[in-house]
Design a protein around this nucleic acid. Structure first.
Lengths: 162, 162
DNA sequence: GCAAATAGGGATATCGTTTATCCGTAATAG
DNA sequence: CTATTACGGATAAACGATATCCCTATTTGC
């Protein structure tokens, strides 16, 4: 069970978009080049962000993406769920219903106890992702990324932002 | 990203094995029939439990599986990891290293900040699974499953336990 | 108005994983 | 000795992740 690589791409792209001056847009082409990932496929991930309402888009030359909210209003969970979906990672097939001792037509009152535990763990995962905002990531990166590289990257993006 | 159905099967099988009298074994055939799942494929899941040391096996007629530890020494995480593996659900491909502004031969000091957050969430998921013991599940089932069904199921298993 | 660049969506192809089955081997109980 | 079992390897089908291509509508700048 491994998350799509698109999740990683989307998170990194949002980190870049967070640094865009207000009103500017960055294209798929620039984001793909910056991260060294296939443009056409990255486009699908960005479309997922768009459909989830996390980013705004414009068409035409100088078009592209910008965040729809401020970085402190965007959580990791928002981004992960936009790409990966909101479905739980554990699917209950209710195999207890195959119990040969079970009376005919017996109807379950509660969700399977096994599934409930697995869903609680799933929720713990989501809660952790919900607790981290995009702004937290930016703060961390600002500390960790060497100043020179940080500055150069910012300029690189600005040159291409429409 | 969805867990294998084998995870569900393994959890339910362990719950059944927890009810076995000391020293008795239950075969793949019986476990597969009880849960209505393909015997050959379930066998792979049980082999995973065996390789992880969670269950003991014996060969021959009246052979099969029994728990290697008491239900309060077996956690959900033990079982989930035995089947699903211990690898993290988020794989960092270190795409930040593709940054065109990055100086040649630059070597990262720390794991990617994005990956660290994702791994913390993964750990939160595991911690939750680690906190629930198989005995907890048995307690819940003992309360929720109708007494009649509980008794019949127990008898069904005993008839087939070697 | 026109040309270039863009997001968006659909169709398609490739690859790896999950799911599933089959078979041969070794061990064991009766 | 026979029947039954766990175990491992080989194989195949089904599915999702990855990736590419193409067409359309829209927008910018000339």
């Amino acid at each position: 069970m491994i998350l799509k690589s698109q999740v990683e791409w989307a998170l990194h792209c949002c980190a870049i978009l967070a640094g865009l001056p207000k009103g500017r847009y960055l294209s798929t082409k620039a984001l793909a080049e910056f991260h060294g990932v296939p443009k056409e496929y990255l486009s699908k991930a960005l479309q997922s962000l768009s459909q989830a309402g996390l980013v705004h888009t414009t068409l035409g030359p100088s078009g592209g993406y910008r965040l729809a909210r401020t970085p402190d209003e965007l959580t990791f969970l928002d981004i992960v769920e936009a790409v990966e979906g909101k479905a739980r990672t554990f699917v209950c097939n209710n195999i207890r219903a195959n119990n040969p001792c079970r009376p005919q037509g017996y109807c379950e009152s509660a969700p399977c106890a096994v599934a409930r535990v697995m869903w609680e763990a799933d929720e713990a995962w989501r809660e952790k992702l919900r607790s981290v905002q995009l702004s937290d990531l930016i703060d961390t990166l600002a500390k960790e990324v060497p100043a020179e590289l940080w500055k150069k990257s910012f300029e690189w993006v600005l040159e291409r932002a429409g």
